[in-house]
Each structure stands twice: as C-alpha cells, then as structure tokens.
Design a protein around this nucleic acid. Structure first.
Lengths: 266, 266
DNA sequence: CTTGACCCTGACGCAACGTCAACCCTCCAC
DNA sequence: GTGGAGGGTTGACGTTGCGTCAGGGTCAAG
C-alpha cells in the first residue's frame, strides 16, 4: 500500500532511518511489489511511530527492540529505568553547565574559585603574569590530582601572604624572568625562602614533604621554567633544603650528595 | 619525565584517549625516549586536563581545538555558545522525560491523554481489547499525522457515545471478532451506522470526507482486520455510503460501481 | 631466564544514521 | 520514442570518541 517514503513521512522519520531499522531487524522487511519496491501497511506505520517515539527520547535502538517485543510489565520497568537514566543525564549536563560557567568567568579552565581568588590576590600584589601562569598551571594539576586538598592549601597560602617577607618574595619572583642568570638577588630569594622554612619548622608546621612523584612533577615544571629557578633550588640544596613545592630538610651528612654545588656563591 | 599512562592518570583520562588526541592533533606529540616511548612534561598534563574538562562537558573535540587555540575573547564567546547548547539539550531531555512518563502511564505509546481517556471509556463499556487495539493503532497514526486535530475529533467521539445507538454499536463491534462471517448481526451494525450517518447529515455535520490518502490508509487497516469488517463496509456501500473512517454519501448513480454487491442480504 | 607490567602501531568495532554512487522503474510531456 | 523528473534499489564509506584486540618490543624484578 505504502512506499517507503510515504511510510517514513507518516512516522516522521527519514527513509534512511527506515532502511536502517530493517537492517538491524527492528522493523520487519515488508513484501516487495512487482518492481522490487517495499510495500508497507498500516501496522508498519504504527510500529515505526513507536520506534520513533522511543528513539527520539534517546532510548538506544537495541533497547527499543527489547521494549517493543516485551510484555507490558517489562515495558513499564524498562521505561522506568530509562527515566532514571534521563534524570542522571540531565544532572550531568547541569553540572557541566556550572563548570562551563566557571570556565567563562574564572581563570581560564579547570580551577576552583578559591584558586582563582588566590591568583587574583597575586595580581593585586603586582606579580608578573608569567609567574602567575606558572602558578596557575601548577594549581590546575593539583586541582585535578587532589581536589579536596586545594582549599586547605590555598588557605595556608593566604596566611603566608600576611607575612611581609612573603610579599617581598613574590615581588622578587615576579621580576625574576627579566634577570640575568647571575643576578645577585637570587640569594635574597633563597634567604627569604629559608627564613620562612625555618620559622615553619619551629612552628611545627614541618610540611614533611608529601614525597611522591606528583610533587616531583611540579618541581620539574618549576625548574624548567627558567635557569634562575634552577639556581635558586641549587642554593637551597647547598643549605640543606630539598625540593620546592614541598620543601624539606635534608640530613646534614647528605648535603652536597644531591647537588653539584658549583654555581652558587656564598 | 612522564610515561603516557602516568600522564593519563594525572589528567583522569585513558591512555587510548591520549593517543586519540595525538591522532587528531589536539595534543601535540611529545619527544620519544631512547626506546620510542612518549615522554611528557607538566605542560602536557595541563593541556590534557583542559581538554578533558571541556570534552567532559560535551564539547566536541573539534571545538575544543578551536577554543584552546583561541584568544580569551573568542574563548569566552565559545563558552557562552556551548552553554546555550547545553541549556537546549537539557530542555530536550526534560521533554523526553515527560513523554516517557506518559508512555509508562498511558496507552503504551505515543498517544495524547485525551485518546487514552477515550479508550478507557470504551473499556468501561466492556469493549473487547482486540477492538480497542485497533482503535488505538488508528489513533497512533492520527496523532502522528495531525496532532492538533486529535482533541477535536475525540471530543466528537465522546458526544457520539452519549447516543445509546452508538453504545449498542460498540457492543456489537466488540463481539464481532468471534462471529462467523455470515452472522446476521452485521446487518444490525450497518443499520446503526447508517442511522447515525443520516442524522449526522441532517444535523449538517456532513463530515464531507477528508478524502486523502491518509484516510484510505486508515480504512485499509480496518478492512484488513477482519472479513466481517469487509462485509460491513460492503453493505454500507450498497446503500450509498462510502468509506469508514470518514464516511460520505455517494451519488446514487454510482452505487454499485464501487462494490461487487454479491455477499450481502436484504 | 622468565614473568608481569609497561610501551608501540595498526586496525576493526560501535551507534545511528547521512551521504554519495550507480543503477532501475514509472510516468509524463514533447 | 525519448528524455527528464522523481520515485525506488543495494552497497559502501563517513561521522564521533574512543574501546578493544592483535602482534609486537622494553624494562625492572625475582
């Protein structure tokens, strides 16, 4: 009675979709007319409309198959499950919207608000964008790696910034990209860092070094950023401090075993 | 520094995904070590986390490419557009949920509430499920074809059911599947239909036949449902009425030209 | 020396069709 | 009768974002 295009039109789908449903056995192949054309009846229209209704709702065709060939009780169960999946998917998309919104507003990508605020505070101190980019990238990694640690560590950072020594340190770090490698101010940087660490150790905040490959990765990033960074770390190592992201004391007898100790003065 | 699996772990993606991003040029291929292994640095981690964040939000990878390689203003614009798309998608899924909910509750599939109610009224009259299935399928097609006509036509059907003649008609139709082809009650059915049509014509409700292939399709379905249906329509044709879904008067001189007129009595 | 846990490339698979290509039918106008 | 428009047919490749082998090589440890 019906050609494939009229069948498709009645059900509101494309001809290609109908043929696809034939291929996967979702809609039975109908009789052919004398010239090989498929010839459909109304039952096909009804089945196709049902298929379309479910498929449009995002139900996978394999599941459509099951549902249509099942009894009413299995059908109801299947529909309930699909509803649950839809709810979950909607929630997922809404989460994504929130995240995307933060992307647009915040520090480019993938950063919690606390970090964005912290970086803004650095900007407020006049810190150079190149240094901020370094910090940002490090925080991106930290946020991906240990998201629930971030706010805690950021809070500590904020407290650090209440110390004028640290403000001075950031001033120096901010300029560091424009220095020559042998600029004497690297020593001031090392001094500031060391003073701060000594006070931290005295205060019992011995951040005894998370000592894991992730910290090594962060350190490596920092070292690669500039030869001056390497000098700073080298000076600190000579003085018995190891690392950067998570600095820790090194037993005195091992100092020197870890660094070539050749390019620093003092 | 990093092997591919550690890189992937840091960013929360699979190794296969990383290689895929290389293939499509989304993440640059890094250096290889002496044995041909890819060797990543922290910058790769950062880029990969960014990619992952966007991709997880449902952004197509091609678009991720554009966004990451664009300036902040283009980035913001792109993000805004993605947000619009997400909103649209969420709305779509919510529509689907509503439809799915009606599927579960209502008359199996793809029917508006008015039709479901109407079919329930038929059930209340004791109409056989086989007949109801026929009606349901017809309504599925009508609802897909002319959704805004449905409620109007259903309202008319409800008014019809206030007529005891129609109630009697449905009683008969309900049993029809168990009759032998030559059951005399088919004549009673024809009488009832004819009386109703005459009154309809007198009342000026000459539903002068939507006369289109869609109506033909509905009629064909009805005719195929049972040989008795064919007899009923044949009797009506002898008396000058044509069709079923949308019955109309046929000029007297053409009666008989349309039917073989051989199997009816009276 | 073997074993297990990595790494590599290449290639097919999936879901739900879209989109040619190359060819057949039918009808209608010229 | 012939050509063109507008149907239909099968076959096969393209899309998106990877999953999942297959068939190798590499590396550290027991």
């Amino acid at each position: 009675m019906l050609t494939i295009s009229r069948l498709a039109a009645y059900a509101g789908v494309t001809v290609r979709a109908v043929r696809h449903y034939h291929q996967i056995g979702l809609l039975p192949e109908p009789e052919r007319d004398h010239s090989g054309y498929r010839s459909y009846d109304a039952a096909a229209v009804v089945r196709l409309i049902r298929i379309h209704t479910l498929a449009e709702a995002g139900v996978p065709l394999a599941r459509v198959q099951e549902l249509l060939d099942a009894g009413p009780e299995a059908f109801a169960g299947g529909v309930a499950e699909i509803d649950r999946e839809l709810r979950a998917e909607i929630r997922r998309l809404q989460d994504n919207r929130r995240r995307i919104a933060r992307l647009a507003a915040g520090e480019q990508l993938a950063l919690p608000q606390s970090v964005v605020d912290y970086l803004d505070r650095l900007r407020g101190l006049g810190v150079d964008e190149r240094y901020i980019a370094l910090e940002r990238d490090a925080w991106i990694m930290v946020a991906a790696q240990a998201p629930d640690l971030v706010d805690h560590v950021i809070a500590q950072k904020h407290r650090d910034l209440d110390d004028p020594d640290m403000v001075r340190l950031y001033e120096l770090l901010s300029e560091v990209f424009d220095w020559r490698t042998d600029d004497p101010r690297v020593v001031e940087i090392a001094d500031l860092v060391e003073r701060r660490m000594i006070r931290a150790v005295e205060a019992g905040e011995l951040g005894d070094g998370v000592d894991n490959p992730f910290v090594d990765l962060l350190d490596a990033t920092m070292l690669e950023s500039s030869p001056i960074a390497q000098r700073i770390v080298a000076i600190l190592e000579e003085r018995g401090w190891q690392g950067w992201t998570s600095i820790k004391r090194v037993p005195a007898d091992r100092v020197g075993a870890l660094t070539d100790g050749s390019m620093t003065r003092r």
